[in-house]
Design a protein around this nucleic acid. Sequence first.
DNA 1: ATTGAGATTGAGACTAAGTATCTATTAGAG
DNA 2: CTCTAATAGATACTTAGTCTCAATCTCAAT
Lengths: 148, 148
Amino acid sequence: MENPRDIFIAHLRRKGLFLTRERRLILEAIFSLRKHFDFDELYDTVKKRVGRVSRATIYRTIPLLIDSGLIRDVFRGTSGTQYEQVRGLEHHDHLLCVSCGSYIEFKDERIERAQQEVCKKHGFVSVDHKLGIRGYCRKCALIKRVKA
Amino acid sequence: MENPRDIFIAHLRRKGLFLTRERRLILEAIFSLRKHFDFDELYDTVKKRVGRVSRATIYRTIPLLIDSGLIRDVFRGTSGTQYEQVRGLEHHDHLLCVSCGSYIEFKDERIERAQQEVCKKHGFVSVDHKLGIRGYCRKCALIKRVKA
DNA sequence: ATTGAGATTGAGACTAAGTATCTATTAGAG
DNA sequence: CTCTAATAGATACTTAGTCTCAATCTCAAT
Ligand SMILES: [Zn+2]
Ligand SMILES: [Zn+2]
Ligand SMILES: [Zn+2]
Ligand SMILES: [Zn+2]
């Protein structure tokens, strides 16, 4: 039951929903994409494979996939939400280069643990969290320094 | 020179811009608002005080205030960006209740320090960061438990 | 105080992400 | 196979935020 398709079906069942052709194709399309993707990439991929799909269907399916734990939304930039495949991957946070748009993933146990403590101290029940550090990646930082 | 108005003027000067009546009024309006606010609250407040202001002017002024370090944008929810006054306050991060919309501010030095180390390890030059933990505040967590 | 170049405003057109609505179609239980 | 609820597609709609441009304002230089 670690198969994404089975996970998805199980989640749909639980909510009394069907695994339709479209939902299956959207799920498959996601796994043909790079790990981080946005709406348009998903939309274009599905369209290329099926010929026709409604934007609304994609928008309706995304929350189902999020609730299934198969993807998550990572950032919300100026041009729409960025998603990423979860694929059994561990939770992680991001370094985001504001210059070239690249990102680095990281996970720091000290940060994760400290967050739990913060929540505990405030009687707060955490559901999820996002830590995004914006700045300049090694390459862009170098370029910037050369220019300056 | 710690006066917000002076900080703002200095920033404008540096960029060859004027402190216009509108910009001054927007700045003043912000200080009459609670610490966290969104576009509409700012817009309505300015309008109430001056009678007329263009949405575009507010939108044009916000980045100037951000660049001046007087406000910062905190989240981007479903309904627009949330800003907060900085007012010489220390940087902090947020616990966000998904049930009642309240937030708790916190700062954890261990987290801040660990972030610096992560950046260093990746040759990443950090500009800023946002850590948002979503979940249920004490009160809402209790209500949820009672219901369940 | 006047003036002129450049900055700024207001109004509204525009863009684009995401949602809502409606009708025809489909999934799947019985 | 049949029936019903769920669904997809098409498209209208909503809304945060940007862009445009003519009219107006700012302020430094006279
Ligand atoms: Zn984390
Ligand atoms: Zn990632
Ligand atoms: Zn922080
Ligand atoms: Zn805050």
